[in-house]
Design a protein around this nucleic acid. Structure first.
Length: 609
DNA sequence: AAAAAAT
């Protein structure tokens, strides 16, 4: 009956396990991270909020976790703890009129939001809640002259002569069986075993050490393509080995280039949309790089610049970066991209959406045009295709699974239609059912909603932690580490955690709020069921999400999931094409129940927000 | 109307 394969349905059993003595008696006081529901609901008996001091982690500046005793005070979510001003009217200020920020005219590609903003300025909406600290558009980067380019080693693929090549027929069967679709001229055969691609020995050693048995489909086909030196669009579901699919060819690429000399920038540049993802990619790169004597560093915001600058100036072959800090570094001339010949856009459709695309353009303009560019994502929305092709030349394309937006098959998807006001109660019911110490990730639409639900959960005795972009990086790092280690098995998040994050054994993903696109839905639920494991995604679906009903049903059907009748019913009341009557009702209806409005009575017995 | 990305 229970769809969550709940072997430990009694929350008490979890509680007891967590109070075992192996958690006690350490030098620094260890706070139990989760104690299950507290009988009397209130503050007494609830553990204090996680103490950063006792964890060895960097103490976050801004706090962000309410004191259980005094939930109405000391709850500063703002960056740096200071003004606490955030949101739309607060201290951060919405400087729509801000100075001379130019509006790169004509950039009205709102593919992501789909909100049809009229002609003219296009990006206007961005400044509404904008962050005045982001002046990225104003950083002028040195004009690059590519006139004196020297050719570089590009095609590095050769088949291992000691291994019999597949026949044409075998290739067809191989691809069909793994749902590999390819496009492009001169597509190389996929490889069946690691040795077939002639990776250097150290790579094979690390692969063996990591226990990989055979290449995943995206690797089997992506490796030979990438090694050919050609541009590449790689689309494969999350958890399918995409990172290594571009990193190993990157190592081969680096090894084939002249060594770096003093003052040279990196040879490989990987761009990622969130800091955590960038860090995760570098961790992967380090596993291989240390053997190969290929250095890498991660350039991202929220962390001290000094060490990053030192790494860059010492010279690194591989840079993994989020766009903002990289542009900053480029502007300050701490690094140059003149030697980049292998460019990777990870979670590329996100990188090309409204907020990022100008930054990507700026960065790419610093890189020689004859570079090799690799575009990777789990989703390939129509809307970015033209834009993506702008950065790519005669690319190969490899898709694993169907062309359509498709969810990971090993995830059980449950969709429940409800009202906003029912969400919290349903969440608690779920937690009581499934909480056995394995990880549960809960997605919210907004940072504010994220904080509020987290806060309510903690007041109700569920020691949830939350991660989103208004928290300082130290806290984000700490929260993610707590979640990854299992010390804190409940994490609430905005879409900052939607893409690419690889956390083992997430048992259940909850879409507390439906995401703003079906692509995001697929990415979010892809946090569970990674690397072939099973997982469950529970989605709360409200009337305000009706416009997604049709497409969601498609995804459910394609993955062989149950379509609840209440969801089917919503396709009749609201078309998936624009202009349905509900979307006008937003504001009155849309936002209400999510424990978000200050006028809403919280479910946890009338505590002030 | 949202998130993310620099100080």
């Amino acid at each position: 009956m229970n769809p969550y394969d709940n072997r430990y349905s009694d929350p008490d059993s979890y509680r007891h396990r967590h109070h075992r003595s192996d958690l006690m008696g350490q030098k620094t006081p260890v706070v139990p991270t989760m104690i299950g529901p507290v009988p009397h609901g209130g503050g007494a008996g609830v553990p204090p909020p996680p103490s950063f001091a006792g964890r060895g982690g960097p103490p976050p500046v801004g706090g962000g976790y309410p004191a259980f005793e005094r939930p109405s005070s000391g709850f500063s979510v703002g960056r740096g703890g200071g003004g606490g001003g955030r949101g739309f009217s607060g201290g951060r200020g919405s400087n729509f009129h801000g100075g001379d920020r130019r509006n790169d005219a004509g950039r009205g590609r709102g593919w992501n939001s789909g909100s049809g903003r009229g002609g003219g300025g296009g990006r206007g909406g961005r400044f509404g809640g904008g962050d005045p600290r982001r002046e990225l558009d104003n950083i002028a980067l040195p004009k690059q002259d590519f006139g004196d380019l020297v050719p570089f080693e590009k095609n590095l693929y050769f088949e291992n002569p000691s291994i019999r090549a597949m026949s044409e027929h075998e290739v067809v069967t191989f691809r069909a069986r793994r749902e590999i679709t390819v496009e492009g001229h001169d597509v190389p055969r996929p490889i069946r075993i690691f040795h077939e691609a002639n990776f250097p020995d150290y790579c094979l050693q690390v692969i063996a050490k990591l226990g990989f048995v055979e290449p995943t489909p995206i690797q089997a086909q992506g490796w030979p393509m990438a090694l050919k030196g050609r541009d590449l669009i790689g689309i494969a579901e999350t958890g399918s080995g995409k990172t290594l699919a571009y990193l190993l060819p990157a190592f081969v690429h680096v090894a084939a280039q002249p060594r770096l000399v003093h003052g040279d920038g990196p040879i490989v540049l990987v761009l990622a949309p969130t800091r955590e993802l960038a860090v995760q990619i570098q961790e992967e790169a380090l596993k291989f790089g240390s053997k190969a004597n290929i250095r890498s560093t991660c350039i991202y915001g929220g962390a001290p610049k000094g060490p990053q600058i030192r790494d860059l100036q010492r010279g690194v072959e591989i840079v993994i970066a989020t766009p903002g800090r990289l542009i900053d570094m480029l502007g300050a001339q701490h690094v140059n991209l003149r030697r980049v010949t292998y460019l990777v856009l990870d979670e590329a459709d996100r990188m090309l959406d409204m907020g990022f695309e100008p930054q990507i353009r700026k960065i790419v303009s610093q890189i020689r045009p004859d570079r090799q560019t690799l575009y990777w994502s789990a989703t390939w929305p129509r809307e970015v295709e033209a834009l993506a092709r702008h950065f790519l030349h005669n690319p190969y394309k490899v898709i694993i699974g169907s062309q359509d937006l498709k969810a990971n098959q090993s995830i059980k998807q449950v969709v429940e239609v409800m009202m906003d006001l029912e969400k919290y109660k349903r969440l608690i019911k779920l937690l009581k059912e499934v909480m056995d110490g394995s990880r549960i990730l809960i997605f919210m639409e907004t940072k504010k909603g994220c904080d509020q639900v987290t806060r309510q959960l903690r007041m109700d005795g569920w020691a949830a932690l939350s991660i989103h972009g208004d928290k300082n990086q130290a806290e984000r790092d700490w929260v993610l580490a707590e979640f990854k280690s299992g010390r804190s098995p409940i994490m609430t998040a905005t879409d900052v955690a939607a893409r690419g994050l690889d956390v083992k054994d997430i048992k259940c993903v909850v879409n507390y709020d439906f995401p703003s696109s079906l692509e995001d839905y697929v990415h979010r639920i892809g946090r569970t069921g990674r690397a072939g494991a099973r997982g469950t995604a529970l989605t709360f679906f409200t009337e305000s999400n009706a416009k997604f009903a049709r497409d969601l049903i498609k995804i459910l059907q394609e993955a062989g999931q149950i379509v609840p009748p209440s969801l089917s019913a919503m396709t009749r009341s609201a078309g998936s094409f624009g202009g349905n009557f509900r979307s006008r009702g937003r504001g009155g209806f849309g936002n209400r129940g999510m424990i978000s409005g200050s006028n809403t009575v919280p479910l946890g017995a009338g505590r002030p927000w």
